[in-house]
Design a protein around this nucleic acid. Sequence first.
DNA 1: CTTAAAATTTAGTCTTGCCTAAATTATTTT
DNA 2: AAAATAATTTAGGCAAGACTAAATTTTAAG
Lengths: 222, 222
Amino acid sequence: MPITMTRSTQDYLKRIYELTECGLPASTNDLARELDIKPASVTGMVQKLAAEEPALVEYHKHQGVTLTPTGKRAALEVIRHHRLLETWLVQTLGYSWAEVHEEAERLEHVISEDFERRIAAALGNPTRDPHGELIPTEDLNMPVDDTTPLSSLRPNQSATIQRVNAQDPNLLRHLDSLGLTPGIQIEVTEYSSFDNNLTVKVGQKANVLGLNITTKIFVEIK
Amino acid sequence: MPITMTRSTQDYLKRIYELTECGLPASTNDLARELDIKPASVTGMVQKLAAEEPALVEYHKHQGVTLTPTGKRAALEVIRHHRLLETWLVQTLGYSWAEVHEEAERLEHVISEDFERRIAAALGNPTRDPHGELIPTEDLNMPVDDTTPLSSLRPNQSATIQRVNAQDPNLLRHLDSLGLTPGIQIEVTEYSSFDNNLTVKVGQKANVLGLNITTKIFVEIK
DNA sequence: CTTAAAATTTAGTCTTGCCTAAATTATTTT
DNA sequence: AAAATAATTTAGGCAAGACTAAATTTTAAG
């Protein structure tokens, strides 16, 4: 039997990929929350994905779900589509990084491999999308990311922003207005151990950032 | 109740638009053939479209189906998407007019109005797609087409190719190789009343074209 | 005008992928 | 370790949109 690769399947695999990046299986509930689908439905779908031939996920009752090599490849394919599309919408149609996610979310499921190759080539085979997220390679490997969460820096450390792991348009617009975008140099000047706030200097301006922000910004320490 | 605008709905409306351009209702069978769906299924779907509030089509048993103003608007929206996408794939990603149809067929259902506006603007609000087909305006009106089918020309008439009404990649590649593309000047030198073949001069070369081709090429007579 | 053929519709099924409610299993608390 | 809570699964349903087979209507041919 051939593998059925519907929009729904692709969404499940993509979310499972993201949730299992930490090395642990994805729980039904977490997956349900990410997909905005009721947990009962997720159980059913996950069982189906596990029953595919070849299986797309490995699933054990009450123990969460992980991707099989086949499932992982399918997930990376979708993620590659998504990130190339985001890059390309920003570069060629003037989208901002805040607007781009939703559009890519729909396009990622319908573009051909030909289309993928064409935009990759037109963009010069980029390795990161507008948020700094790594783009899986054409042969579907995810490059290793050696960045550090901003939240782990301490006063007197300088770094370059590499990646901002967020899609919420409001947050992204906020970060834009603070100048906190990939490529930018920053320096940590203060740290509060009570609330884990960091004071971060961007150019001339200093901003006090909470954990909610500093755990989503990933940097390369200089 | 809000109108449900699924991929399937959009495909039905688009095909009905095309089939009713001649002024006659679209028959169940013709629609089934165009959509590659069994006639029995088409009947069911058409009944549903007619039952929508507001109705998308007008349907009378055994008498075919036509679009309501609402349905027509929805159809033109999809057609505008399709033709803008084709134009844009050709202009910015180097697709040939033969390759472009299939890709646009999938993308047309998922792009946002924002995306539509952006590519329209980037292309300079084109009025025709790569095949010369007219693009519905932003306010969803179809410009009137005053072209003539090549099949109706006779010897000694000269014309400019405006539009080629075909999607079959093989046919399009063939026409490409003969130089029969929009914008090109031609002259009819011979006509056979037996098989309706026309001999058409393109540049230096003369080609004998059958009805199958000459009814799909539309020209402006000089 | 009657019959044969073609087109269309009806009736009943299936698959996908979601939902709710209820049951079950795990995890925490006390 | 029992009870309470949280997470998960099972069971049963539903809507969309397709299909097949059978019935019906229309059209075309003799």
